[in-house]
Design a protein around this nucleic acid. Sequence first.
DNA 1: GTTGACTTTTGCCAACTGGCGAATTATAAT
DNA 2: ATTATAATTCGCCAGTTGGCAAAAGTCAAC
Lengths: 132, 132
Amino acid sequence: MNTTSKNELGELLRQERVKIPLTLQQLSDMSGVSPSHLGRTERGDRFPSAGVLRKIAKPLGFEEDELFTLAGYLSPQADTVSDTQRNYGGGRLDPYVAKVLAQEPVEVQLSVIGILGMLKSIAKGVARKEAD
Amino acid sequence: MNTTSKNELGELLRQERVKIPLTLQQLSDMSGVSPSHLGRTERGDRFPSAGVLRKIAKPLGFEEDELFTLAGYLSPQADTVSDTQRNYGGGRLDPYVAKVLAQEPVEVQLSVIGILGMLKSIAKGVARKEAD
DNA sequence: GTTGACTTTTGCCAACTGGCGAATTATAAT
DNA sequence: ATTATAATTCGCCAGTTGGCAAAAGTCAAC
């Protein structure tokens, strides 16, 4: 449908699924869409209908209509769409990192990024000192 | 498809089209959807995809996503809380954590879980000590 | 009534979606 | 290395969507 696509949608879907992390089978169980179809969708040999997009959105952590705009069913600035995180073109989370972290309780996960924030501010201070 | 449907969507579409007023041909010219398909859709023997709903929305005076909810592609009020449903199975990575971490270089990500590992082993030692 | 233009419906068809089961490929475990 | 097991992909299929062209159905002027 979108000739210039390079299949960014499918790649995004796989990226999100893997980083959660989920298998096709698990996502299938949550969404009611067959694993084979999900796989084909991610790799771009099938284009997902609005129905499937709706079913898989929440399990993947998307807003209900977020995937619609990404799929071109809704224009980018269409109403409502809470300007959520613009992480799409941004950095990627290493799958191994995701897997390890996912095994920790959410509070630990949050602590980890809290500590990361501290380290970053310390590093920043050090860098400023060194620059003097 | 839905035997009990009464086809409210199709009837609504026809009502709006006639009210404007437009012929199937005219709506077809504006939307790029064939008259025959529009006719079948209104009468309920075809169910419109998200693509055609998007195409005919504005010509009929609807918001772009308005027909999506009417067609059941979008729930009546998309609640914008992605935090509500989580923890499907065990081992899920918090989306916020994922977003934050994803913005760091992969080496930083790896360092982070390295540090996490250290902290865990320290905690384990402490716990054993306390248990004594 | 008949002709004419216009609107809607119908017959048929290609293309696509999405599911199921088998085959293949990765991942552990012994 | 070999086997077991889980994950992904492939082959094939039924059901739908949506377009085109031809067939009705409508309504006016003549």
